[in-house]
Design a protein around this nucleic acid. Sequence first.
DNA 1: AACTTTATTTAGCCTTACCTAAATCAATTT
DNA 2: AAATTGATTTAGGTAAGGCTAAATAAAGTT
Lengths: 222, 222
Amino acid sequence: MKKLLTISTQDYLKHIYELTEHNAPASTNTLAARLKVRPASVTGMIQKLANEKPALVEYQKHQGVTLTKEGRRAALEVIRHHRLLETWLVQTLGYSWDEVHEEAERLEHVISEDFEQRVAEALGHPLRDPHGELIPTANLEMPLEDATPLSTLRKNQRGTIVSVRDADADLLRYLERLGLIPNTHIEAIDYSPFDHNLTIKVGEQTRVLGLSVTNKILIKED
Amino acid sequence: MKKLLTISTQDYLKHIYELTEHNAPASTNTLAARLKVRPASVTGMIQKLANEKPALVEYQKHQGVTLTKEGRRAALEVIRHHRLLETWLVQTLGYSWDEVHEEAERLEHVISEDFEQRVAEALGHPLRDPHGELIPTANLEMPLEDATPLSTLRKNQRGTIVSVRDADADLLRYLERLGLIPNTHIEAIDYSPFDHNLTIKVGEQTRVLGLSVTNKILIKED
DNA sequence: AACTTTATTTAGCCTTACCTAAATCAATTT
DNA sequence: AAATTGATTTAGGTAAGGCTAAATAAAGTT
């Protein structure tokens, strides 16, 4: 007897999850920007979510918002849907890496538990989606991230790209052109401590990447 | 620059299409029953749909409602989505014949044109869904039905099941148990003009079917 | 033709989730 | 400590799409 949440509520929870993932409560304004809604609307919605029983968010006026246990589970459910869907759309309908997001964004709210299970099964219970993001488990826990930002790689170290985080479609297309997609093997050939630029070798190519990019790419050293 | 319709509107149009398929305008009450909504709500919604520009339905107080050209196209779009989705879910996720309906019912409203095309492509542009229902074409026309009701089959005639129309999940499960699913070959071995019962042979089995069943099964003679 | 039953419509309300404008709080400067 | 600025909240509205109850229209009976 799980409570049914509106699409809008699911979206709020998902975005709150993402904004609070690295500690720190989410502010009304950033949430409003993410949701493409006015700050006043966010305040209203948050107040409702905080007064549900059980409460989905923890909220003190002017102090930002965090998820409760219930809220977190609901958020992880949506995120699991999203990431499974992206994986599935890429694998079975030939969507490209950067096209799937929008489609999954709409589907994630309407698929059944049964559908979720069938897709997970069909995909062999994948750990990561096509961007390399971790997929929450069936019992709604987020696996630990065992990859590290590319920005921590230093001269002569090698690694394999695992994930590209928080990237918009433009950046994804850019990275795809550079061949910087999950499973690609790379080697750091230079690092500048001044501007934090990292020079890497990707296959035959040499690329120089700034911090804003190297921070978004996760790798596993090898 | 197609107009975006709400899920609710899409549902109204779809059900109006189905109720008016064999001539005759749809009445407020039957529509309300189908949509699981009160008659008063139907009146309200229909009035809105009739006043859209362009109008989606034709409506005269107390005379029932029919679709306009625009309304019909919108309805066929939803029905195309539904039937493609059912076909796809059965083929790629192993849904059974009688389980797909609900899932497709929710997905049909949120998939993109791109998704529709990819699925149609992946399936090889099928003509019928798993129930045998005709799938509207990409340019939103309903193909002509070239199959006939099983109730017209007479002693010693043979045919192949093409479709099971308007059946609820219970009937579908029942027919599945009897082996009466699309592509099954059958032969009429007796017909009673009094009660319209038809005795047929399905593989090794002999079955006696009443009119309420034989009218819902479409076949092609051979 | 009058009455009864059933179908349909009108009127008035509710909820959800958004909006704008105005008010208040918090943080930073001066 | 006061003032300014920016973030947040309150107050009051709007549009969808439901609902109930009451009013009206149509259809069927006597």
